[in-house]
Design a protein around this nucleic acid. Structure first.
Lengths: 342, 342
DNA sequence: ACTGGTTGCACAATCGGTTGTGCAAGTGCG
DNA sequence: CGCACTTGCACAACCGATTGTGCAACCAGT
């Protein structure tokens, strides 16, 4: 490798070295030389020279001209376990397509989301993946106005292609598992408000929580024949709030209920803060289910059933939707049950 | 907001609407109108028109002209808990500076790292943060050749500014805590190979593990007066390997040792896979320390002391080093001890 | 030798900003 | 009124690629 200049090489430099014109160089390096009727020998010579000089194209210039940047963005709320997994697969998939992943967290702030999308459109981004955004419709309009292909993951949007976990079915299955675990522990549903399952955490105004609540309710009703609004304690994903919620529930019931449906990783962590203070026998009398997969959840002093969202599948399906330019559809991906040894 | 065209607006469009020239528009929108002696009234009129038309600059064009992209990149190996935290703060810091964070995971692959940096230089990236990279020196050379400011986080580089956790001191403190916990459990160091602390996981060829091993060894020597190479089981960060390592150690010793120094989150998870299979009394007889902070670690059936790396501080110091254009120095950040209730 | 068709490439416009420079109109002063 | 100086802005040259178009040179056929 000749390190003559540390300066950036342009096609003009290469053209000079090769005794060719910039357009010829461009064609050679882009593989379009055949279409442009450049002699193979010339193309090869140019490619060789470019290699020697360590040429790499100025991507701004290319993007400016072609208005395609080769950037693909992922917007997500924060870096928790689930979203990090999504980010990881997203990264791999994008790079496998020879594009550059741009991952941005917006902290569940709608304004931040809007302004980020505005920024990204200024970058002539090729596509945007939205994960767990707050206001999908607005964002979709924004993208549509800028002509940017986009997909929603884990949060459905009525006016754009979306891929989401089938929360309702997942919640039914998880609820069934919790109930099975309860009966295995010899507990049955009765008039005592402790003798049932409680749903903790999440935000009912968001579709995913709403669907989980629905699934939970349906299964409860199917199996027990009744379900009370008091069993649903879902107002926020916040970790601290989850700790308070379970603490209050415990105080109110005078002990743990027979079963707990824990909505999401962060709620799990918050709940555990309180649970960790309880004696062994109280914990082993209660059946736990968590709608999210947390490896450490397998390793607690009591069994926890978990619903694992298939992040790889979610992302891959999202790419498929994008690439086929699908009309607005919502595609569902089934989560997997991790069944703890009871 | 007037949504006349969904097409992109340029300064030329705005210029026409405002009856001004493109250069005037540019100056107005960039706030350089004072330097360019544009009348305040004109500038304000232009700004207003731009707002009305929802103008936003084409960043490729700007970057092409100025050769500054406003992009700041973070390269990291993968999205585990520690790196995700880093990514999160990085994101916030970059956006606070009105720039755009680009986060890319390279899966600990040196070739991937090289090619990613090459890509990034083609984007005239403004700066690169490297976290936990495999071959720092190569990357630093690459950046230097392209004239890109860069910083290493969590992995020192001899020829570029670096910010790393003070692993040696951290390891000494954690080791001290483990030993204190041991004596509290009535165990003392003896000839039985079980009656001591073992260091599990990590990669000794990497500086961070090496420093932790050093700190561990020093403290052991200081307190016990001896340390054997057999106590150090550090060959990889791999999760599965960690499970094997602890399983074998258990078999070899005929039980758990008196203390375990667990190197990193992933090793913790791997180790726990095995530990979770053991009965209560064996676990409570052993003292655990983990060099990484994992919230769920507080919630296990046995106490685990943890060293929390201060990711926020790491990232902020890294920005400071960049912004002050410091010569190659290695700056150390002390980790914090999380002391479990024994 | 002249025509028509191909081959191989160079020219120049263009993407949308930034920025050095120049020039007219206005102001102040003697 | 004339001159120097300031104010307010427009012009045009970039940045480095892509791409439509044009034009020599060569070839084959007549």
């Amino acid at each position: 490798m000749v390190m003559t200049d540390t300066q950036k090489k342009t096609i003009y430099d290469i053209a000079k070295r090769a005794g060719a014109s910039p357009s010829t160089v461009s064609a050679a390096l882009n593989g379009t030389w055949k279409k442009r009727r450049i002699a193979q020998a010339t193309a090869e010579r140019i490619i060789e020279i470019a290699r020697e000089h360590g040429y790499s194209a100025n991507l701004q210039a290319r993007a400016l001209r072609t208005s395609r940047s080769g950037l693909v963005a992922l917007l997500m709320p924060e870096y928790n376990r689930f979203f990090s997994n999504i980010a990881q697969t997203f990264s791999q998939e994008v790079r496998a397509r020879n594009q550059c992943p741009v991952i941005i967290s917006t902290g569940r702030d709608p304004d931040e989301e809007r302004s980020t999308v505005a920024d990204l459109t200024s970058w002539s981004i090729d596509a945007i993946f939205f994960v767990g955004t707050v206001a999908p419709d607005d964002l979709s309009h924004q993208c549509r106005a800028a002509g940017i292909p986009h997909v929603f993951v884990d949060q459905p949007c009525a006016i754009a292609p979306s891929v989401v976990t089938d929360s309702r079915t997942g919640a039914r299955i998880l609820t069934r598992e919790i109930i099975a675990s309860m009966t295995k522990r010899g507990r049955s549903f009765g008039d005592d408000p402790r003798e049932t399952v409680y749903f903790v955490g999440g935000d009912r105004t968001l579709p995913s929580t709403k669907n989980r609540v629905d699934g939970f309710s349906e299964e409860m009703y199917a199996q027990v024949g009744q379900i009370s609004a008091k069993q649903i304690l879902a107002s926020t994903y916040d970790l601290e709030a989850a700790t308070r919620t379970i603490t209050e529930l415990y105080a109110q019931l005078g002990g743990l209920p027979a079963g707990l449906f824990i909505n999401s990783d962060s709620v799990f962590e918050g709940t555990l803060r309180f649970l960790a203070t309880l004696p062994e026998h109280e914990l082993s009398a209660c059946s736990f289910g968590c709608f999210d997969y947390e490896p450490f959840g397998q390793l607690l002093r009591f069994p926890v059933h978990m619903m694992r969202q298939r992040h790889k599948m979610l992302v891959q399906r999202a790419f498929a939707l994008l690439e086929n330019e699908t009309p607005p559809v919502i595609e569902y991906v089934q989560p997997e049950l991790y069944r703890a040894a009871d």
